[in-house]
Every structure is written in C-alpha cells, then in structure tokens.
C-alpha cells in the first residue's frame, strides 16, 4: 500500500509543481493519473521514487517513509518500485536480456552486474518474464532492433524483474499507435491483477484511462481536483480538470478514432463471415 501525505514540490525556478497532494493506493489497485500537460503528473510519480526530490510531505510505502531516506537506503527501497517510461528508456545498445536483468541491479553486487554473471534464479526469472510478455525469442537481440511496442514490453519485463511492490508508469502509450497502446494497457492490467500489484499510471488519453483504470485521479496545477471511478468521470469533472476547451477538443479527436475503430471492426466481422 502506498500513502502520499501532503506531498509538495517547488522547483528551483519557483514553479510549484505539486501542492499538498494526499492519496492512498491500496494493494492491487490500478490508478490512472490524468490532467493537462504541466499539471504535475510526471513530477508526482518521480517524487515517489525520488528521481525528483520532493520539497515537503511524506511518501509511505508499507511503513517506510521514502522521503527521509539516505542515499544507500533509498537505493534499497527503489528496488521495491518498478518504473515504466514513456520513451521506453531501454539501454538501446544492450541486449534485451541485459535490459531485463538490469532490473536486478539493486539486488546484485557490482562485480556480478559488470561481468553479467547474474545468479541462476535471476536469469531463469528473466526468461520467464520475457516469455510472459511474449519476447522470449528476442532475448539476444539488441534493444534498438525492436519495434516500439516490443520495447515497451521489455520495459515492463525490466520493471517486473525488480519484484516490485508498486509500479510507476509514466505515459506508457504516448509513443505508440492506438492498437499497440491498447495491447500494452491490457498487458499491464493483466500483470497487475496476476500479482496483486498497485500501479500509478500517468496517462493523457482519457478514454484509454476510462477503459482500463479502476480509479482515476485528476490533477490540475499540482492539486488533486478529481478522485473517483471511471464512471464518475463526467463531463463536469473533466471540465474541472482540463478546462472547457481542451476537453472538448480531446473528446472530438477521440470520437473520430472510436468511429474509425468501430468501422474497422465491422469490416473485419464482415470479412470473417
């Protein structure tokens, strides 16, 4: 379980990215974080594993306050938090297997990681995870030889290799086409369900969030302005998060896409008949 208490972040430039955010994410819950760009979504998830240092508040994972930890303790706690990135953030010039094994870096001593001599159990698990995301035959390929969707699957396998107690997911589908986006979201939700993992997912695509998330939190200018189930995300709620115009703009774009997808589905069905 993750508890945020009064989390705040003010950047050196004086911009307040987060103002007094308090949230509780119970075990197994997938929480979508929506909001216009600049609302502080990215800052929020980076404050949890302290890639960005929060300026105030508490981050409680279990009963450990991550904000107070020293460097070495922080590294030990970061192992418990898997992170998945927008641009995949794989080490492009390493093999897929090395990328997955890099999820074990927090557990192995330097010499093991340097010589690529991981414990047999780690390697077995890495293979198992690659199999789970459907990439076992690509293990020896270099990461830059894969497509976007495949790379994001490697990113997921790397995060899971950490044996995390929490997943932080930063715009997992922003660089992917709509179809692959849905596949990746489905994979993520399945995996979280399998392991009873809580996850915080930054997502700019509201319909996608409504389709896959159990709970949605809306941020605006660093403040939580909405917290509820996807069904409760009404027109008024979205207006509160995004402001009038942006939200209508977004809905129009999505309606087009839905229509196109429905159309495609009908045609496929016709062909199958």
């Amino acid at each position: 379980m993750l508890i945020l208490e009064g989390l705040s972040k003010t950047y050196k430039t004086g911009d307040a990215a987060l103002r007094d955010v308090s949230l509780t994410v119970p075990k197994g819950q997938i929480m979508g974080l929506i909001g216009p760009s600049g609302a502080g979504k990215s800052t929020l998830i980076r404050c949890i594993n302290r890639l960005v240092e929060p300026t105030g508040g508490k981050v409680l994972l279990g009963d450990m306050d991550l904000v107070r930890l020293g460097k070495a303790d922080l590294r030990r706690q970061r192992r418990r938090i898997g992170m998945i990135f927008q641009e995949y953030a794989l080490v492009e010039r390493l093999t897929v297997m090395e990328n997955v094994l890099s999820g074990r870096l927090g557990y192995v001593p330097f010499w093991r990681s340097f010589l690529r001599k991981y414990p047999p159990a780690d390697i077995q698990r890495a293979y198992q995870l690659l199999d789970r995301v459907g990439l076992i035959e690509h293990a020896d390929k270099r990461a830059d030889a894969l497509s976007g969707g495949q790379r994001q699957r490697v990113g997921i396998a790397r995060a899971l290799a950490q044996d995390p107690e929490l997943l932080l997911v930063d715009e997992p589908t922003a660089s992917l086409d709509p179809k692959t986006s849905r596949q990746i979201m489905r994979l993520l939700t399945e995996i979280c369900a399998e392991r009873d993992l809580p996850a915080i997912v930054n997502i700019h695509d509201v319909p996608l969030a409504q389709q896959f998330m159990q709970r949605i939190v809306g941020l605006r200018a660093g403040r939580v302005v909405f917290d509820g189930t996807p069904d409760q995300l009404t027109h008024d709620a979205l207006t509160a998060i995004y402001g009038e115009e942006d939200w209508n703009e977004m809905r129009r774009g999505d309606e087009e896409q839905t229509r196109a997808e429905l159309d495609a589905r009908d045609r496929m069905a016709a062909l199958a008949r």
């Binding site: 093999t95 297997m97 090395e98 094994l101 690529r116 991981y118 047999p120 159990a121 390697i123 077995q124 698990r125 890495a126 293979y127 198992q128 199999d131 293990a139 020896d140």
Partner: peptide, 11 residues
C-alpha cells in the same frame, strides 16, 4: 519455474 534456462551469456 518451468523449463527456463538458468544461464545466459551475452552474445
């Protein structure tokens, strides 16, 4: 822990 290999060498 099915039939997955326990060793891996960087190609």
């Amino acid at each position: 822990t099915g039939p997955y290999p326990t060793t891996w060498r960087r190609p």
